[in-house]
Design a binder for these strands. Structure first.
Lengths: 206, 206
DNA sequence: GCCTATCGTTCGTTATTCCGAACAATAGTA
DNA sequence: TACTATTGTTCGGAATAACGAACGATAGGC
């Protein structure tokens, strides 16, 4: 019990207490199609550090992780959550629009737009084959998700509540809770999804 | 651009990016009736550091926070997360969605969502028969319009510029100028439109 | 009142995070 | 092939987080 924070050249000790951190950062970075240099620029963290973090070769500061989380449009607690979420696999399309695929590869989320406002905003084109399931980890606190079903039939579960949607209906709910979208119909379901990452109302100013 | 991470005696900069952390640790520690020394013993973190963390005078490493979380019978993401919010789901039925029709009644614009943020935000489901024309009066200054063409073919005219869109493409333009959307194809055109009113721009979210 | 125990804070040293530049590995282009 | 760009990694130096000990403050016990 002497090695304070033993590391140095090879053997990792404290670095990998959160083994998912490096993978998570790496996965998010790739989902946004960013290089180390680009993420470094957007986050203000040296790319050498990001490289080390992704390989779990260092024990970063809260501040560093926070800056990375922010650049990756998420929050620090999201990034540090232990359970790896293999929900999305990054997949590149012809037009350069990143496409996210669900694990069963029956759902496809295309990021068709994003805006940097005081709040951050993204919208998606969502398609699901019959039986397709899209499970989302909670988004950052205060996030609102809006789903408009263009065609087909969906079942949406937020926290414990379940709603069925038919074509033409829309649903709005908190995205900062675990939620699941299932195509319960026989045909392809098609929807537009808008995601607003916002200041929780009644938030303190400093 | 010299101050790397300015701190030093008094003025905190990076330390309080997660202002709740110190309070959270302190609250948990007191909830268990632990002194700094006791928590130090159980967690393996020097009590001087715990003291500084609780007063947001340092920017701890992930490892340190993790050891503290563990000693306090919780997880690191719990400690770093802000308080939860009540659940809410808002379900809008098909009948409740207002539909706007263009003058030639060949275009239909369904308002599928709106949010009051610092900026005002609306999004639409847009459908146009072949030959349909949608002419818009200029929206308030600073408005940004984003169009994502799901299917068909559109021609968008903003001020003097004309752009042709094919399925899968998207376009972003100033909405505070007169603009016109024409379905130049032979089939129904289908698009998602997002409209953001606000911020004279130059505003960013951090 | 005095002594002792315990509390949280401050101080000097050591270890390591972080940075920027240099480097190697990989493509893409002429 | 050589030249250029871009990728991720490695390396030395500066900034600082973590440590342990020392310090003042507070409260009991005698």
């Amino acid at each position: 019990m002497s090695t304070r924070r033993g590391r140095r050249n090879g053997n990792v000790s404290e670095a990998d207490i959160t083994p998912s951190l490096g993978k998570t950062i790496s996965r998010l970075r790739k989902a946004y199609n960013l290089s180390l240099g680009e993420l470094s620029e957007q986050s203000g963290v040296a790319k050498s550090i990001i490289s080390q973090i992704e390989r779990n070769e260092t024990n970063p500061t809260i501040g560093t992780v926070w800056r990375l989380s922010r650049a990756l449009d998420t929050t620090i607690d999201e990034v540090l959550k232990d359970e790896a979420q293999p929900n999305f696999i990054e997949h590149q399309t012809k037009a350069g629009i990143p496409i996210l695929e669900s694990q069963d590869s029956l759902c496809r989320l295309a990021i068709i737009g994003a805006l940097n406002l005081v709040e951050y905003l993204q919208w998606y084109d969502f398609r699901a084959e019959p039986g397709g399931v899209l499970e989302s980890e909670p988004h950052p606190p205060g996030t609102v998700e809006h789903l408009y079903l263009i065609a087909g039939e969906l079942e949406v579960t937020v926290a414990d509540e379940i709603r069925k949607l038919t074509a033409g209906e829309s649903l709005r709910y908190h995205g900062d809770r675990p939620h699941k979208i299932v195509n319960t119909g026989q045909a392809i379901a098609h929807a537009t999804m808008v995601l607003v990452e916002g200041t929780p109302q009644g938030e303190q100013r400093r």
